[in-house]
């Protein structure tokens, strides 16, 4: 399972970075999404995968039956997904604004702030 996840993380990172290297800002945004999913999956996988044993305390007991899945990484991933959601929402608005203002989605056209003169 871990191997499969590792391969998946690799594929996600690779495709995310590939998309970010394209010139289109829409692809940049999609690349960022893939990258953030890859990072979430890394966090989730590296913390250890335990299948089918949620950390729920049975009625009357005071501890879940061992082995149980570590709840902390799940909480972390959930938080990271929420943050990723917020950031993505902002990025989409930004991409739309940039397209409206600059009139193109080609990154090469957006170099006016890099040169020596504005």
């Amino acid at each position: 399972m871990e191997t499969l996840m590792a391969v998946l993380v690799g594929v996600l990172f690779a495709s995310g970075i590939y998309l970010m290297l394209r010139r289109s800002i829409v692809k940049l945004a999609i690349g960022l999404v893939l990258l953030s999913q890859a990072a979430n999956l890394t966090l989730f996988t590296a913390a250890g995968l335990t299948r089918g044993s949620p950390p729920l305390v049975p009625e009357g007991g005071d501890m879940p039956p061992v082995p149980f899945a570590d709840p902390l990484p799940q909480a972390l991933v959930l938080t990271a997904i929420v943050i990723g959601f917020g950031v993505l929402a902002f990025t989409l608005v930004l991409v739309k604004r940039v397209y409206q203002t600059v009139g193109t989605d080609d990154m090469d056209e957006m170099r006016s702030t890099d040169g020596f003169k504005d």
């Binding site: 917020g86 929402a89 989409l92 608005v93 739309k96 409206q100």
Partner: peptide
Amino acid sequence: GVTLLVILTLQEE
């Protein structure tokens, strides 16, 4: 609030 702020902004215009 946040979700609607973004969605409504994107849908307008």
